[in-house]
Amino acid sequence: MTLPITPVILSGGAGTRLWPMSRAERPKQLMALTAAQTMLQLTALRTGDAARFARPVVVASRAHADMVEQQLEQVGIRPALLILEPAGRDTAPAIALAALAAADPETPLLVMPSDHVIDDLPAFHAAIARALPYVADRWLVTFGIAADAPETGYGYIAVGDALGDGVHRVARFVEKPDRAGAEAMLAAGGHAWNGGIFLLRADAYLDALAAHAPDILAAARTAMARGERAGDRIYPNGEAFMASPARSIDYAVMEQADRIAVVPVAMGWSDVGCWDALHAMTPHDGDGNAVGGDVLAIDTRNCLLRSDGPTIAAIGVSDLIVVASGNHVLVLPRGRSQDVKRIVAALNATRS
């Protein structure tokens, strides 16, 4: 009997590049940025077909436990497990916790960040179906996002030899490039964005950790063994978990192991990683403005204007990002929103 796929939703990120709306107490995955539902809700609903997918396992911050449960309940989803990290240690340890919790070691895990957009669900599900036979044969599979612009904010995957229909070996992973490097890869073809979505068997992932990052596996095992459980909530032991290095699955496993495959797919994906990305994907008015909340725009063009409280009134400006949330207002030129993390770092430094 084929085991159903267990979605593993990673919801521990802070989303600092969407400050001031996304903050530690309510990060972007718990916000409705692109639709009526929050990004966490949209992620969970992508795998709502009970014939193909088991109930999800959500790995989240302890501080967000109640919000995560409430939001999923609102869309009729009850997680199989809610694994609550004492603090974030990046994706490799988080996925290890989920793999250790799998009821069957051969369970295929579909690892998804909770704060991405996927517009073409049939394309996503078809890519999953292409990957499954290789996952059953213990390949670790990543999904390569069709690159349509020379983005410097993403890592890239060089697509290697074909293994089967739409499934390829990974030739290599490429760190976030400069502009010239991104343009060269786009022009050459054969490269996809690394979207951070994976399909892998629980035991195959744990074996890869044992071979390439045993310190992460040991910390995760101890944290789960010494942890506590209350209903569907698991609280890994904090001291043991914090002994794990903070490392992504890419560095810890995917760039080290041998049987790594990629399924290239065009599925309307975005990580909504900055305000410029949100401007690009939000419906515009006749002057190219993307507005949300209480906004008045006169003789204003190509701006993102968004507020969850005070009125934003703009006149005679263009190509700006203006975001008002609580007691904070962000103003910067379009094209500079990757620099928001510098603002967050500066604010944190003044408060420490």
Rank of each mutant, 00 (worst) to 15 (best):
P4E: 08
I5L: 12
I5E: 08
G15S: 12
L18I: 01
L18H: 02
W19Q: 04
M21V: 12
R26D: 07
Q29C: 09
A32D: 05
A36I: 01
L40W: 07
A44E: 13
A44T: 14
R46S: 09
D49T: 06
A50G: 06
V57N: 05
V57C: 15
S61K: 10
A63W: 05
Q70D: 09
E73G: 14
Q74F: 01
L81Y: 12
E85P: 00
P86A: 04
G88F: 09
T91Y: 00
A92S: 03
I95K: 00
A102Y: 00
P105G: 00
P105A: 01
L110V: 12
V111A: 12
M112D: 08
P113N: 08
D115E: 07
D115F: 04
V117H: 10
D120L: 03
P133F: 05
A136V: 08
A136E: 15
L140C: 00
I145F: 02
A147W: 08
T152C: 13
G153C: 03
G155I: 03
V159T: 12
V159W: 10
A162N: 05
D165N: 13
D165M: 08
F173S: 06
A180T: 13
A182I: 02
A184G: 07
A184N: 06
A188G: 12
A192L: 10
W193I: 10
D203E: 14
A204G: 14
A204C: 14
A213W: 04
A213M: 04
L217P: 12
A219E: 04
Y235S: 07
Y235P: 08
A240Q: 12
A243Q: 09
R259S: 11
I260T: 00
V262F: 00
G268I: 04
W269Y: 15
D271R: 03
D271Y: 02
G273V: 04
H279V: 00
G286Y: 05
V295P: 15
A297W: 00
I298K: 11
D299T: 07
T300V: 05
C303P: 10
L304Y: 07
P310M: 04
I312L: 15
A314G: 14
I315Q: 15
V317W: 08
V317S: 09
V322N: 02
L330E: 06
G335D: 02
G335P: 07
R336A: 15
V340C: 11
R342Y: 11
L347K: 12
T350K: 15
R351Y: 11
